[in-house]
Design a protein around this nucleic acid. Sequence first.
RNA 1: GCCUCCGUAGCUCAGUUGGAUAGAGCAUCGGACUUCUAAUCCGCAGGUCGCAGGUUCGAUUCCUGCCGGGGGCGCCA
Length: 586
Amino acid sequence: MSSGQNRALMADPIVSVARRLEGAFAAVAGGPCDPVVRPSDRADAQANGALALAKTLGLPPRDVAQKALDAAGDLSDMVESTEIAGPGFVNVVFSTSFIASELSVAMGDARLGVRAADDAHTIVVDYSAPNVAKEMHVGHLRSTVIGDALVRALQYVGNTVIRENHIGDWGTPFGMLIEHLIDLGEENAAHELGVGDLDGFYKEARRKFEADDAFKGRARNRVVMLQSGDADTLRLWQTLVNESTRYFNKVYTQLDVLLTDDDLMGESAYNPLLAEVVERLRTKGLLEESDGAEVVFPEGFTNRDNEPLPLIIRKGDGGYNYATSDLACVIDRVERLGAQSMLYVVGAPQAQHLQMVESVARMAGWLPEKYVMNHVSFGSVLGSDKKILKSRAGDTVKLATLLDEAVERAASAVAEKNPDMSESDRAHIAQMIGIGAVKYSDLCTDRVKDYVFDWDRMLSFEGNTAPYLQYAHARICSIFRRAGIERSSIRGGQPLLNDPRERALALRILRFDSAVWEMIDTLSPHKLCTYLFDLATDFTSFYEHCSVLKAESDSIRDSRLTLCDSTARTMEQGLALLGIRAPEQM
RNA sequence: GCCUCCGUAGCUCAGUUGGAUAGAGCAUCGGACUUCUAAUCCGCAGGUCGCAGGUUCGAUUCCUGCCGGGGGCGCCA
């Protein structure tokens, strides 16, 4: 391994200095000790570890801080100055040459200095999960966009990531859906679904089911035929699935996410395992009979009347329900796919259900202790009235319609601001801007909270928005275009960082490493968004104050070109981890 | 009733796992364009971090109790 790769293991200087101080603090403490190094507004970083340590040692905090600095020895290869301040904080200022050389190393790394996972493993990410013959709406938007970003980030640092799209393709509604398909005629029905009128199809089927007893009877009979594997029924069912997934793929293409047919793992895929789930639970002695159903009582769950709450494995009528297939999922993911970690990107209302599934899986011994099953919960999309987002007619908002509107709005913004652009360029770029804006507005706030959907805000070029970040990237591309310089031609050098904005920008770029890891550690894409916004802000400030092409000297010009290129690469990669494109002009 | 999530500037949101004086962006106000894309930048102002206790050197952050809002609580998925 070259020293370059070795250094790149910790691109963020704050991480580097933290590791250096960790030993020093440990020496003072006489055991492992966190130096608590954080970014600081009074220096580049501050170590707060002395205050806590002072307590256990019974010494004045400032003395402890001094001892730690003494133990750290010579830090001059990375640090310009250290200072003990206030009650015992250690303020750290990096040497500018260290920042410059670290940036050069990071930019020579294939991952731009982002640390590789030291525990890379196989992770299943379960996301999107629309229902066959039902329209995709904003709830699917959140799951799809958040899940996709997590997949990209987890993959980036070296994990093996398996995408699973657990579509709703089984269950009692398929009786009425198949009968409605027959009524319409297969050709007509396929067309209706193929063009994306899933809502109309589903609603009509449900209307007939509720209004027409004969239809209801046929539907019920059809469910039995489906479950018993009747060939003709299965063929009709497959038509529904195929037409729906064809439509989903259109939305996924528009949304620009990674999901393909290879990732489809619908509920029906687990049918062969359901009987085994029951048998295994029975063998373990976990299965109990309750009100005619076969259930498991995981500890710690109670119902309204404070009685134990069961997870229903097999209904009174002998049918299975979603808890059973979710348990089959766990078995399949652990035993067939070798997953050690499972992420469920599912709305907050499913929290208790997933807890119960995990609990039963652990009771049954299907989920080893160290394996994690993580609910990546998220809140709702709200309208400006702070209520769940609805269309003007009061229906749920069709995802496809919403995405079309995003692209339309972006197209008219581009047409207005950049009228010289060709029609085909504009269409292409509007796609990146409109879709990017929707995705970013979904990703940029803490996922556990609800968020307010606002067209004007998300498409604005001001504030924490995708267009603002994309614009920073486009401006850099524009500089190189204007100068007629290939970006790759100026790589490899170390930048001069004499202006405070140059220095701040370089340090910010190096913190990409930590930003990606914060996103991964907390499964929170908004951490990376916040970073990219800071990066764009630091760049724009640099851009306003440090002329690149009209720099005072050629060496400064080249140095600034290097900074521009480093910024653009980091921005493009960061946006890519969020599933967002970075156009070269806009 | 029980469980769970949320409550930070007029609005929309951050706050790096307990650190110094709580930060952005909108909106308002005051400045900067024969431009490396002003789709931008610089500045002013704006706060009882829902309320009350507790833990400790130190709390927006952890604990308890209230108040307000969302969601969940047995055969739909």
